[in-house]
Amino acid sequence: MAISTRYVAKETAANLMRNRLMTVASILTIAVSLSLVGVALLLQEGVSNATVRWSNGVNVAVFLQADVTSSQSVSVHDQLVAMPEVRHCFYMNKQATYSEFKRLYANQPDVYETATPANMPPSYRCVLSNPKDAQTVQAQFVHKPGVRNVAYPGLEINTMEKVALILQIVFLSLALILFLSAFVLIANTIRQAIFARRREIAVMKLVGATNWFIRIPFMMEGFVQGIVGGLIAFGAIFFLHWGLGYLVNHAGAQILKTIVISSNAMFVTAFAVVIAGIVLGTAGSLIAIRRFLDV
């Protein structure tokens, strides 16, 4: 049976307007919780970008000259693996280094646009038995022929990862609590709407309206709350990302420079947040419908 969109729109709008304060409360709760989720996800992305060189337990990176000869390269490799402190090494070619470079400087296009795969330094990424030996490796290799420089993660990387982890745990816990409250708020809003319309619902059942016909306006009410909350969170994430970029580029906030979040990642996260809002809103209303709408 066709359910006219006009009817659904009219009823949904009437429900939302009837319960304005509750509607605003649930929309804001959704928006805040989803913004927190979004920020936590972006923080994860930013930190993993900043520390991409040191993923998979890499403790030291030996960068070669861009014009290194293959014999120089082989000799560096042989000497590296011969060291007792080195557990194993892998080679990172120019192309892979270029991709990593782009990821590191994603929010500074002027930096990576001048770079080409050809002028990237290839490197050996090594895992050490004891991370503290990174300095020894650096001292030994930094002046070898064909070696450009030797890098190892400083203390600040470790600190950054720890701080980010704590922030993420805090944000996600808060988001979880707000998620639950948003859920309860939506369910309660729908419950009140069902109660306010109990006479209409009784008549609808009596004259043979189908169950879905009765349910859909209430479902749409939760859906609208979810999508509006999600869109507000989208805006918040967008604004935060823009603000971060502004601080780095114009206000000289160098500390933030290491936390790199590409526009792409930001948009993916923001869209995920809107979808989460829709799911949250619809699920909340479905629960209320199941519990309180006896059709």
Binding site: M1, S4, V203, V207, A209
Partner: peptide, 18 residues
């Protein structure tokens, strides 16, 4: 339905069955 007119009350029965 107290907030609907006579016409709307009767029309409601048709409206909700599509």
């Amino acid at each position: 339905l107290p907030n609907k007119s006579v016409f709307e009350n009767v029309a409601f029965a048709l409206e909700v069955i599509g």
